Deep mutational scan, measured.
Amino acid sequence: DETGKFLVLSLYDYQEKSPREVTMKKGDILTLLNSTNKDWWKVEVNGRQGFVPAAYVKFL
């Protein structure tokens, strides 16, 4: 199980638009929880879990 094993870097600021999403700032290091959807990845940032656009992050 690779859940929570990968870190990704936020390339852009992102403001959550729904309760299922999370806000991140450019340069944030996020824990990747799920990347099965090619468009939206589930991450943990600042103690919160939610989705961010996959195009806004990259693997470290």
Results as ranks from 00 to 15, higher is better:
D1N: 14
D1V: 14
D1L: 14
D1Y: 12
D1P: 14
E2Q: 14
E2Y: 10
E2G: 14
E2D: 14
E2P: 13
E2H: 14
T3K: 13
T3S: 13
T3A: 13
T3H: 14
G4N: 13
G4C: 15
G4A: 13
G4R: 14
G4W: 10
K5Q: 11
K5T: 13
F6A: 12
F6T: 15
F6E: 09
F6Q: 14
F6I: 15
F6R: 15
F6G: 11
F6P: 13
F6C: 15
F6K: 12
L7P: 04
L7Q: 11
L7V: 09
L7I: 09
L7W: 11
L7D: 03
L7C: 12
V8K: 01
V8F: 07
V8Q: 02
V8W: 07
V8Y: 09
V8E: 00
V8A: 09
L9V: 15
L9F: 09
L9P: 00
L9H: 05
L9M: 13
L9T: 08
L9R: 08
L9D: 00
L9N: 02
S10H: 04
S10I: 06
S10E: 01
S10A: 15
S10T: 08
S10R: 04
L11N: 03
L11V: 09
L11I: 11
Y12L: 10
Y12T: 10
Y12M: 13
Y12E: 11
Y12R: 13
D13M: 03
D13I: 04
D13H: 05
D13A: 06
Y14D: 02
Y14N: 02
Y14A: 02
Y14P: 03
Y14G: 01
Q15N: 13
Q15F: 14
Q15C: 12
Q15A: 12
E16Y: 05
E16R: 11
E16K: 14
E16I: 05
E16M: 12
E16D: 04
E16S: 15
E16L: 07
E16C: 12
E16F: 05
E16G: 15
K17T: 12
K17A: 11
K17P: 04
K17V: 08
K17W: 03
K17E: 08
K17F: 04
S18D: 12
S18C: 10
S18T: 12
S18R: 08
P19Y: 09
P19C: 10
P19Q: 10
P19T: 10
P19H: 10
P19R: 08
R20L: 15
R20S: 14
R20K: 12
R20A: 13
R20V: 12
R20P: 05
R20F: 14
R20D: 14
E21A: 06
E21I: 04
E21R: 04
E21V: 04
E21F: 06
E21T: 08
E21G: 11
E21C: 08
E21Q: 10
V22A: 05
V22D: 00
V22Y: 02
V22R: 01
V22I: 14
V22T: 05
V22Q: 02
V22S: 01
V22K: 01
T23M: 03
T23D: 03
T23N: 06
T23Q: 04
T23G: 09
T23I: 04
T23H: 04
T23V: 04
M24N: 01
M24Q: 01
M24I: 15
M24V: 10
M24L: 09
M24T: 04
M24D: 01
K25I: 08
K25G: 04
K25Y: 09
K25C: 10
K25S: 09
K26P: 04
K26L: 05
K26E: 07
K26R: 11
K26W: 04
K26I: 06
G27D: 05
G27V: 01
G27H: 04
G27C: 08
G27Y: 05
G27K: 02
G27S: 03
G27W: 05
G27P: 00
G27I: 01
G27L: 02
G27E: 03
D28F: 04
D28N: 06
D28M: 13
D28A: 07
I29T: 07
I29C: 08
I29K: 05
I29L: 09
I29Q: 05
L30V: 08
L30S: 02
L30K: 00
L30F: 05
L30R: 00
L30M: 15
L30A: 08
L30E: 00
T31C: 12
T31N: 09
T31D: 04
T31E: 09
T31Q: 12
T31M: 12
T31P: 08
T31L: 15
L32P: 00
L32E: 00
L32A: 02
L32S: 01
L32N: 00
L33A: 02
L33N: 01
L33D: 00
L33S: 02
L33F: 03
L33H: 05
N34Q: 09
N34L: 08
N34H: 06
N34P: 03
N34M: 07
N34Y: 06
N34E: 14
S35W: 15
S35V: 09
S35Y: 11
S35I: 09
S35L: 08
S35P: 08
S35D: 11
S35H: 10
T36V: 10
T36D: 15
T36W: 10
T36S: 15
T36P: 03
T36G: 10
N37Y: 08
N37H: 11
N37D: 15
N37I: 06
N37P: 03
N37Q: 08
N37L: 09
K38G: 09
K38F: 06
K38R: 12
K38I: 09
D39N: 12
D39Q: 11
D39C: 14
D39E: 12
D39Y: 15
W40A: 01
W40E: 03
W40Y: 07
W40K: 01
W40F: 07
W40V: 01
W40D: 01
W41D: 00
W41N: 00
W41C: 05
W41F: 09
W41Y: 10
W41K: 01
K42P: 01
K42L: 15
K42M: 15
K42E: 15
V43K: 00
V43H: 00
V43E: 00
V43A: 01
V43Q: 00
V43T: 00
V43R: 00
V43P: 00
V43W: 01
V43L: 02
V43S: 00
V43G: 00
E44Y: 05
E44P: 00
E44F: 05
E44D: 09
E44Q: 09
E44M: 08
E44I: 07
V45R: 11
V45C: 09
V45G: 06
V45F: 13
V45D: 02
V45W: 06
V45L: 15
V45Q: 08
N46E: 10
N46V: 04
N46D: 12
N46P: 03
G47W: 02
G47P: 00
G47Y: 04
G47D: 07
G47S: 05
G47T: 04
G47Q: 06
G47R: 04
R48N: 07
R48D: 04
R48V: 09
R48S: 06
R48H: 08
Q49P: 06
Q49I: 15
Q49N: 07
Q49E: 12
Q49L: 07
G50L: 03
G50C: 03
G50A: 02
G50W: 03
F51M: 08
F51Q: 02
P53G: 02
P53H: 03
P53F: 04
P53W: 04
P53M: 04
P53L: 05
A54H: 03
A54E: 02
A54Y: 02
A54V: 05
A54R: 10
A54L: 02
A54T: 05
A54D: 01
A54N: 02
A55S: 14
A55G: 11
A55L: 10
A55I: 12
A55P: 08
A55V: 11
Y56H: 07
Y56G: 07
Y56L: 13
Y56C: 14
Y56F: 13
Y56R: 04
V57R: 00
V57K: 00
V57F: 04
V57S: 00
V57E: 00
V57T: 03
V57C: 13
V57G: 00
V57A: 02
K58T: 15
K58I: 15
K58G: 13
K58L: 12
K58R: 13
K58Y: 10
K58P: 02
F59Q: 10
F59S: 09
F59Y: 11
F59T: 10
F59V: 15
F59C: 15
F59M: 15
F59E: 10
F59A: 11
L60W: 11
L60S: 07
L60A: 07
L60N: 05
L60D: 06
L60V: 11
L60M: 11
